[in-house]
Every structure is written in structure tokens, then in C-alpha cells.
Design a protein around this nucleic acid. Structure first.
Length: 596
RNA sequence: CGGGGUGUGGCGCAGUUGGUAGCGCGCUGCGUUUGGGACGCAGAGGUCCGCGGUUCGAGUCCGCGCACCCCGACCA
């Protein structure tokens, strides 16, 4: 490609609304342009990289038996109603009506379509196992798109779906993806770690997320350096330090003016925050069939702990969860700032109340809790004796330094970007859409499903995030839009540089090398800066100065050293460099032990 | 959905007490340059986010919207 005709322009300055390095550089280098919040155009350079990333994904999924297909972006609402996700998912789902007023859905993912196909196509165990996949547009109307291509509303995803006759089959396909995903990330030039994750809106039994570690990531991960345990904070469990057991003491109501927070309360009473019980009030929508009921949730955690809303949602099986307002707290008969389940009216006219208590509270005695009386707290409260819980479970968030659930060593907290995920769906979708097959004994059995996704744009942004410096992007050879940036330095005196460069360009193309040829009539500074910004892995410079000696310059983007080589050797030197760069990537592809 | 911020030429920005819009980069033409964002001359390009209001007069003041960004909630 000649730069004189490339549909793209570099910018000296990044737009102010870009913050992450990858976002700024992809915009400055002319890879992406924004159309609206979370909606981007991939310009020709980005498109070439995306195609390479997608080809890598194709190769790896084909290698584990995947069959590529293409499923629609627009779905009738019916299939989403059958799985009830039509009701469970809120504003994030794109819905519209067609001209006949039929409800339609913009695909957020394709489990419904796969399940619909499965129930129509799969009848016998002889047709299983199957692995199908496609690379397709998704729409998720994220409440908060941000960070360039990292978190967008419209995106392209490689999603594969495994169909199996039994759980062993699912496990096999799941493990195949587990390794294939590492191979994909490594081939793209980034490392990622797999962590246990929440199943979220996908449902199912077990899930891993692949995290590219960067401080700009928006997920928080808990890692154990001692035993290798790793999990998203949303689901990370940990060893909770129980306080020494005490004999229950009688409750006592005490005056605690201006103690609306745990910190104020602990300071006023001169006790550690761990000796208090913190009540958090939420309003939950809990689906029941095609409708849902709202409940007022009293969540109780120890004063020194943080409520983990993902754990709470999962414990409640809620579709929506939001903080209760002060008015709502008053409406159920509680006193904001001094509320607790103790002394709460049996009945209220607002909403049914559900009390859910962290397991550590059940092991703690004589905690200070609100008295449901403005300005008063209750000393020595004890679960069971003083109030009852509808549910006792793990409700708190792990933090840096908390004990690993496997070995007790302290957690390290890191940030990451989720670049892929794999789910053991089981029969979540088969059951609701009726995907069954006949086994050898002629018995009807549900198809066992798995689903596996990687966003290609997010992966591109992560590669850009990993590989850049103060001058611009530094693409790994495997995803670079072009392998070589051929810089021609023009001269007014003669056309020698242009002629030599044009000939080399033709020779490189003929040899199958991917070349971006800067044939523009610009000054060297402009050209070198653009080359650094766009970031092709190999740069060749053809200028009058070197040509006098019959030489051209070759330089790797990720190294400082430049080499002068004879013009006649340029082609084979470039080919050797390309091979070396591929070999470097190849060396990073390693077997990763499976950890459940 | 809460909190904060920003909307002026393609990009980055300035615009005073309210007086009819400028700068740098980029773009076009001509000329001089050519190994790390060169220089001269001449140009093009703006419904100042939108609507309403105050005023003789609004980029500027007031009101209501909209868009985008950041933090949180949420989410892949």
C-alpha cells in the first residue's frame, strides 16, 4: 500500500477525550475514528490488524475442531423470551420493533440462536459433539462506554459454542478452549491470565475470564502468588479472620449521636470496626417466571468488610440490584444511619424485606448494630438470638492482603482487561429451548452447551496498550497491518531514491511481503515520525545518502539500532527479519496448566 | 442512574466589561528545501452544540435540552 493513497491520516495531537495510551495512539496513528459513544469505525490500517487477529482466532478454533458459520445480528424476541433473558436483561439489550410491530433484539451474544439451531438440527447422539463458531457483530448498550476500543457498545466477537452429549464432552471442549485462548493471546503478542469469574448474564456452572493485566483495566483481580489461585474480585473467596469467640452478653441500647458511619461509630465507642455490623440496603428485582418481584434487601456484613454486590445478586438470584433511597429505608420502618434488623416492624406497607447475612456475622458475637432509633446503637447483638436471617452466605469482597482460600497466603490485587471468557453453560439454554437428542438407549437427553468469546477490537486495543512507546505503536509481526514500512526520502536533484524505493517495493510485494510504502513528497522528519507512530515492526529507509554507497537502512521498530545493508540484499534481509520476528512470537506459545 | 467536566474551522486551543471571531498544527496553490514533524508568499475553511429568552447588539448573560469525556453504579 502506498501512503500517498492510504485512506488515513496521522494526527500530531490526540483528541482530548482519549486517555488511555492505546486509545490516543490508535486515533493519532489513523487506525480508528469515533462515530458516537462506544461506536467506532475501523480504518484500513485497523481493519488489516483485525483481520489478522480474526485469522489467528480462526486458525486456533479450527484446530480444535471448530466449524465457522455466520449467525444473524437481528433476532426475533421470541427466542430471547423463551430463555427469559428478554425479561432478565435490562436496558443493555437493544430492542426495536420491525414494520409489523414484532419485537426484535440486536444480538448481544448468540446462545439463543445456537440453541434454536440445536433443537432443530440435533436429534441424535451420533451428531455430537459439535463445535461451531462465528465472528460477528454484537450490540450491548453499555451504560458507560469508555477507554476507546476497550469498552464499546458495538463490537465484533469471535464466539464459539460447544454441543455435547455428556458432561465429560463439555469438559473436553472447555479445556481445549482454555488452551486455545492462551495460544491466541500469545500469538497476538500479549500475555493473559485465566481467572475464575462470575457467570453473569450467561448463566451456567463455571466460567473463566482471560485477563490482560494493565493498570488501566477496569476489573480487579485477586491473585495468590503462593499457590496460583486467581479470581475476579466479583467472585473471589478468602479466609475470613474470625474474632475470638465470646459469651453472648445482654443487649444494651446506647446513645451514639452523629454516628452515621461505621468509622464514626467505632471511633465514638472506641472499638474496632470489626466489632460492628454494617447494614446495607438494596432494592432487588427477583424474577419469578415472566414477571419479577421487588424486595427490600437488608444485607449485613461485618463493619470492617465491604459488601460484594455480585455475590449478593447471585445469592438472591436477582436480575437488578440498586441501592435503596433514604425514603425507601424509612418506608420499611427503618432509620437511615441507625438501621438494623433489630426492632424492625414485622410488616410494612412498602416492600417485602429479606435479610441476608454474611457468614462471618454468624461466627461473631456481641456486635454493635443500629437500634432503629435515631442517635442510638445496640451493643452486643447476636444473630439468631436478636434477629434472624433469611439467608447466611458469603457476601463480602476480598481485598489486597486478605488470605487466599486455598493456602492462606495474602492476596495481591491487580487490575486487568477482560479479553476473553469461557463458560460451561450446561443445560441452561437446552432446557429452556428444548434442545434434546436421543442417546444410545433411545432416551431423550438435554444437549450440554458451552460458550466461548473473544472480542477482536478489545484484543487489538490490548495489543496496542502492551506495545507502544513515547513515539507510537510497536506492532507484533503477527498483528501489524503491514510487516514492513518502506520509507522513501525524496530528493529534488534526482529521482534515484524514488526509483530504487519503487523497485524495492515491487520486489517485496512480488515476494509476498506486506509493505506500507511511504512514497509521499514529505520531509524525512515527517516520514520517520509517521513510521514510528504507525508502528510497523520493520522499517527500511531508502535515501540518496545511503544509495550513494548502494546501501539502504533497516531498523526494527522495537530496537534502537539501525543497520545499513546493500540494496541488493534488502529483500532477503527483510525476509530473514520477518522470520525472526515470527519465531520470537512462536517461542511465547506455551502449554498452560488447566486450573479449575 | 448519581457526581464532575467539556462543547468555537479537520485536530489542539484563545476569545477581556456583551460590540459581530482569532492562534498553532493540518489543508490548497506557487517557490525554496529534503536523513528525525523545514521555510517564504498567497489562499480556502466557522449555523461559535441546539432551542428559547434578556439586550440596540450574545461565542460571552439567563433558562431548557442534546452530545461527548471522567469518577461511581453497572458491565464483556
Amino acid at each position: 500500500m502506498k501512503m500517498s493513497v492510504l485512506f488515513s491520516q496521522t494526527l500530531r495531537e490526540a483528541p482530548t477525550d482519549a486517555e488511555m495510551p492505546s486509545h490516543k495512539l490508535l486515533v493519532r496513528a489513523g487506525f480508528i475514528r469515533q462515530l458516537a459513544a462506544g461506536i467506532y469505525t475501523a480504518m484500513p490500517l485497523a481493519k488489516r490488524s483485525l483481520t489478522k487477529i480474526e485469522d489467528i482466532m480462526r486458525a486456533e478454533i479450527n484446530a480444535i475442531g471448530g466449524q465457522e458459520m455466520s449467525m444473524p445480528v437481528v433476532h426475533p424476541a421470541e427466542v430471547w423470551q423463551e430463555t427469559e433473558r428478554w425479561y432478565q436483561i435490562g436496558s443493555e439489550m437493544g430492542r426495536f420493533k420491525d414494520k409489523n410491530q414484532r419485537d426484535m433484539v440486536l444480538a448481544m451474544t448468540h446462545e439463543e440462536v445456537v440453541a434454536d439451531l440445536t433443537r432443530k438440527e440435533i436429534h441424535s447422539y451420533r451428531q455430537l459433539p459439535v463445535l461451531i463458531y462465528h465472528i460477528q457483530t454484537k450490540w450491548r448498550d453499555d451504560p458507560r462506554p469508555r477507554a476507546g476500543l476497550i469498552r464499546v457498545r458495538e463490537f465484533t466477537m469471535k464466539d464459539s459454542y460447544s454441543l455435547d452429549a455428556d458432561w465429560e464432552g463439555l469438559d473436553k471442549q472447555y479445556r481445549a478452549h482454555y488452551q486455545a485462548y492462551f495460544d491466541i493471546f500469545h500469538r497476538c503478542g500479549i500475555s493473559a491470565i485465566a481467572v475464575k469469574s462470575d457467570v453473569g448474564m450467561m448463566g451456567g456452572k463455571l466460567a473463566h475470564e482471560y485477563m490482560y493485566l494493565t493498570p488501566y483495566g477496569e476489573d480487579t483481580l485477586m491473585l495468590c502468588d503462593a499457590c496460583g489461585y486467581s479470581a475476579n474480585r466479583q467472585v473471589a473467596t478468602f479466609k475470613k479472620a474470625a474474632l475470638p469467640e465470646e459469651e453472648p452478653l445482654p443487649t444494651e441500647k446506647v446513645l451514639t449521636p452523629d454516628c452515621k458511619t461505621i468509622a464514626e461509630l467505632a471511633a465514638f465507642l472506641n472499638i474496632p470496626a470489626a466489632k460492628t455490623a454494617k447494614a446495607v440496603f438494596m432494592i432487588a428485582d427477583i424474577p419469578e417466571g415472566e414477571s419479577s418481584v421487588q424486595k427490600f434487601v437488608f444485607a449485613i456484613v461485618r463493619g470492617d468488610m465491604d459488601l460484594n454486590e455480585t455475590k449478593l445478586v447471585n445469592a438472591l438470584k436477582a436480575s437488578e440490584l440498586r441501592p435503596a433511597t433514604e425514603e425507601e429505608i424509612v418506608a420499611i420502618g427503618a432509620v437511615p444511619g441507625y438501621a438494623s434488623p433489630i426492632g424492625l416492624p414485622e410488616k410494612n406497607t412498602y416492600l417485602p424485606v429479606i435479610t441476608i447475612v454474611d457468614e462471618l456475622i454468624a461466627q461473631s458475637q456481641n456486635l454493635v448494630a443500629g437500634a432503629n432509633d435515631a442517635g442510638y446503637h445496640m451493643l452486643n447483638t447476636n444473630l439468631e438470638r436478636d434477629y434472624r436471617a433469611d439467608l447466611v452466605t458469603d457476601l463480602t469482597s476480598a481485598r489486597e492482603g486478605d488470605g487466599c482460600p486455598e493456602c492462606g497466603a495474602p492476596f495481591r490485587e491487580v487490575r486487568g482487561v477482560e479479553v476473553g471468557n469461557i463458560f460451561k453453560l450446561g443445560t441452561r439454554y437446552s432446557d429452556s429451548l428444548g434442545c434434546t437428542f436421543q442417546n444410545k438407549d433411545g432416551k431423550e437427553k438435554p444437549v450440554i452447551m458451552g460458550s466461548y468469546g473473544i472480542g477482536s477490537g478489545r484484543l487489538l486495543a490490548s495489543v496496542a496498550e502492551e506495545h507502544n512507546d513515547e513515539y507510537g505503536l510497536i506492532w507484533p509481526i503477527t498483528v501489524a497491518p503491514y510487516q514492513v514500512h518502506l520509507v522513501m526520502l525524496p530528493s529534488k536533484k534526482d529521482d534515484l531514491a524514488m526509483e530504487a524505493a519503487a523497485q524495492l517495493y515491487e520486489d517485496l510485494l512480488a515476494a509476498g511481503v506486506e509493505v506500507l510504502f511511504d512514497d509521499r513528497d514529505d520531509s524525512p522528519g515527517v516520514k520517520f515520525n509517521d513510521a514510528d507512530l504507525i508502528g510497523m515492526p520493520i522499517r527500511i529507509t531508502v535515501g540518496a545518502r545511503g544509495l550513494k554507497e548502494g546501501m539502504v537502512e533497516i531498523k526494527r521498530r522495537n530496537e534502537k539500532e539501525k543497520r545499513m545493508i546493500p540494496l541488493g540484499d534488502a529483500l532477503k534481509t527483510v525476509q530473514a527479519e520477518i522470520d525472526a520476528l515470527f519465531a520470537e512470537i512462536q517461542a511465547t506459545i506455551v502449554k498452560v496448566p488447566y486450573e479449575e
